[in-house]
Write a protein that binds this DNA or RNA. Sequence first.
DNA 1: AACGAGGTCAACCGCGCGTCG
DNA 2: GCGACGCGCGGTTGACCTCGT
Length: 213
Amino acid sequence: MEIGKQQSGVEEELRRGPWTVEEDLILTNYISKHGEGRWNSLAKCAGLKRTGKSCRLRWLNYLRPDVRRGNITAEEQFLILELHSRWGNRWSKIAQHLPGRTDNEIKNYWRTRVQKHANQQWMPRLLERIRTVVDSSNTISNALNTTLATWNDNSKFSSPPVTSCCNGYSDERDGAWVLEEEVWPEFPTPSSEAGLLAGLWELSTMGSNMYVE
DNA sequence: AACGAGGTCAACCGCGCGTCG
DNA sequence: GCGACGCGCGGTTGACCTCGT
């Protein structure tokens, strides 16, 4: 384990790297008794040889009781795509709309699974398609799950959900998917922002507990 | 079975902002 | 007004895992 040094006065050994079960227990017990905040003094008072920053990160990203673990659901994927298209890399802001998910988790998810496809030309069309589905469907959760599950399971983000909404071909030069514009079907009136919000509100009433301002 | 490449994710780092004395 | 401090955010790193050859 790498050892760091405090900058001030008396040198004190600081632990870095992965947290042990014992450290997790100490931090959890301390916060349950005294609450969070004042992380630097918290670390000292709890007897942890960690920086306040490290304690805060460990608590917020891992130990907090309401941290939700496990796979990102289709609905969460849609929200991440939608909110990122709106706000960019504002991970903490995006995370506020996915209860139990941390900004770090969303950031990692985006960078490892989505980013390399984010600039492909079908992405805006996919978002538009989902918006339309959300806007026009009375079974929003099912519609989203169907659309995105097909997309994820069959293509691993490497191509748009062509089987359900459009045709396309793989560009010989770089393998990127190219949509054939003319085969896009005409959907009902393009969704308005209000329609999208209504759809997400619908989702929130179906137990997903997600919402948008 | 062994090895390398690529993916995943917890943790760290640097910076900027707000607050307080 | 200014410096110290605490905190939060986004970017990056590196250890570990998985998968293909």
